[in-house]
């Protein structure tokens, strides 16, 4: 559901991947080189030299805002020497015969080089084996269709079978995959149940929310973690801020639906910076051996 609510960037933003370029250019003229040298921070509006930003793992060095990163970059950031064995690849069908959906999938496969909006498999983090799933916002807003739902369910089932903890980074979980209609909605039940079975097996699930985690992903597996962490200033919530503003006709609090807001209202366990995320995951995994 997220791409409805996603704020259209007002400024030149960082091109982390080819996907982002495509998504944001959206048929517009190719951007000039000068635009790609600098990025304006979504949060504090400072100008950041792109090379600097990349070196700083896409974190604004003025305010700490965490820009989106691709699933592959996230994998590199979190795993030990990229130790990762992916599950069998699945690709979307078109259950509603939604016009243009297969083309859309092909397009995003092409620009993200992913099969779907999720990267999932067995990984090693700080020496600990776990199942690691990462949602990629660059693939149709990181929305949950049948493939994402199935892979998440398989992730927890794999965790049960091998008695491994599960770490899911809802990195830009957009919410529903509108083109799959009711099938997208059913993934909320499927994934929530997979978490339920996993928890009943006495195993540990760490959910990490990154910018933005909204809608159906937030209202299912992402908020069912035994421990829930978030990156600073990540947008976290059910309904998008624009919808909330429209419906209530109220001025939204300045920190509305941020990770800090979620922490203040008791919805998450902690906020962890990008540079400390791997070590924090490792520590939490070590508590649950």
């Amino acid at each position: 559901m997220l791409h409805v609510f996603r704020n259209k960037p007002k400024y030149a933003t960082v091109r982390t991947t080819k996907a982002d370029q495509e998504v944001e250019a959206n048929g517009a003229q190719p951007r000039k080189n000068a635009d790609q040298l600098w990025t304006r921070c979504d949060d504090c509006s400072s100008l950041i030299y792109n090379k600097e930003l990349q070196k700083n793992r896409y974190v604004c060095h003025h305010c700490g805002f965490c820009f989106r990163m691709s699933a592959v970059e996230r994998l590199q950031l979190l795993t030990d020497e990229c130790m990762f064995t992916p599950f069998d690849a699945l690709v979307s069908a078109n259950p509603l015969d939604f016009p243009g959906y297969p083309e859309k999938i092909a397009h995003y496969q092409n620009i993200t080089q992913l099969d779907e909006a999720i990267l999932i498999g067995e990984a090693k983090i700080e020496g600990y084996s776990c199942v690691l799933g990462i949602i990629d916002f660059g693939f149709i807003g990181g929305s949950m269709g049948s493939v994402v739902g199935e892979q998440i369910a398989r992730g927890f089932e794999h965790g049960i079978a091998k008695e491994l903890p599960v770490v899911v980074v809802s990195g830009g979980g957009g919410g529903a995959r509108m083109q799959e209609g009711i099938f997208s909605l059913m993934q909320m039940a499927k994934t929530a149940q997979a978490v339920g079975r996993f928890k009943r097996a006495g195993l540990f699930y760490l959910s990490i929310l990154t910018h933005p985690t909204m809608g159906g992903i937030y209202a299912s597996f992402a908020s069912l973690g035994d421990i829930i962490l978030a990156e600073p200033k990540a947008l976290i919530g059910f309904a998008g801020p624009r919808i909330v503003a429209q419906t209530t006709r109220q001025k939204l609090p300045p920190d509305f639906q941020t990770a800090e807001y979620a922490l203040k209202h008791g919805m998450i366990d902690g906020i962890v910076t990008r540079s400390e995320m791997k070590a924090t995951i490792g520590k939490l995994l070590s508590f649950h051996l």
Binding site: M188, A189, A192, Q193, V195, G196, R200, M214, G215, Y218, A219, S220, F221, A222, S223, L224, G237, F238, A239, G240, I243, V244, T247, T248, Q250, L252, P253, F256, Q257, Y261, H265, G266, M267
Partner: peptide, 26 residues
């Protein structure tokens, strides 16, 4: 749909929906 309001978000609308789905299942 569930109410998209400020207080609803504050009190964990997404979280409670997830809990309902999960617990109802068992």
């Amino acid at each position: 749909g569930a109410y998209p309001g400020i207080e609803a978000e504050q009190r964990g609308q997404g979280l409670v929906i997830a809990e309902c789905i999960e617990q109802m299942s068992f």
